[in-house]
Simulated assay, not measured.
Amino acid sequence: MPGLRPDPALPQRSGRDGHRAGSPRPCTGTAAREPPAGPRPSRFAVAFGEPRPGRRTSGRALKDARLDDYDAVYYPGGHGPMEDLAFDADSGKLLVDALASGKPLAVVCHAPAALLATRDADGTSPFAGYRITGFTNDEEEAVGLASKAKWLMEDEVKKLGVEFSCGPIWQPYTVVDRNLYTGQNPASAGPLAQELLKVLT
């Protein structure tokens, strides 16, 4: 969406701190990166939405991502997850597997929309009962997009049975529940990265 950007703060920050980010995607035709020689840094699986037409991509397809190859999973925000990851079975499996593994799983801004793909045939999600945050209806109203959206992330994610909380709009706010790390908005991406790096260093 114009004017709003994803929140890839974790890969940028982690790169400076000696961690590397892989980029599994729900699209096909992307090449997997080979790990560098030398000491092994922590590896992040970073899930992004479909690239814009004509944009070059790298990383591996989500369906080919192996959780064993990563120490943590990070889903950046932006409206993209509402368009594709919310309905992507491969993304849903990665999230379910990451949660069950006990490895750190970080989701920020609009990315909790991806949790909708974790529902089973009965509509039950393993994220039910977890405390989370994400981009709020009030923030969506403030940017003037609530009335244009097909659905609002906060409303739909609450239907999973999660305990949704939030701070003041545009202010950093993070929630940690077991191995799940969530951030409310773009301002929360940096603090969320710091929380995640605490358990990886």
Rank of each mutant, 00 (worst) to 15 (best):
D64K: 00
R55P: 02
E140G: 03
F135R: 07
A86L: 09
A117S: 15
V96W: 03
H110I: 07
R56W: 05
G102Y: 03
R55S: 14
S58G: 15
M153S: 10
A65W: 00
L94S: 02
A146W: 06
P126M: 08
A98P: 07
Y70I: 00
G92Q: 03
T136V: 03
E140Y: 06
D64A: 03
Y130S: 09
F87P: 05
A146E: 12
G144I: 11
T118M: 12
H79P: 03
I132C: 01
D122A: 15
D120G: 08
A72K: 01
P112Y: 02
R119Y: 12
E141Q: 14
L99W: 03
D64L: 01
A146H: 09
A106Y: 08
G92L: 06
A89R: 14
Y70C: 01
P76L: 04
A72T: 03
A86R: 15
L94C: 02
E140C: 05
A98W: 00
R60P: 00
R119Q: 15
E141H: 13
L67M: 00
A86N: 09
N137P: 07
E141A: 14
L99M: 11
L116N: 09
S58M: 13
A89C: 04
G59T: 01
A113C: 04
D84Q: 08
V108N: 03
D71T: 03
Y74A: 03
K150C: 10
P104G: 08
A86P: 03
L115I: 10
G134D: 08
M153H: 02
R131N: 13
D90Y: 00
G123E: 10
G77Q: 06
A100Y: 11
S147N: 12
H110F: 14
A146T: 05
S125P: 09
D138P: 11
Y74Q: 05
D69R: 02
H110P: 09
D71F: 04
A72C: 07
L95T: 07
L116P: 11
F135D: 05
A114T: 13
R131L: 10
M82E: 11
L99E: 05
L99D: 04
A86I: 05
Y70N: 00
L116C: 07
A128K: 07
M82V: 08
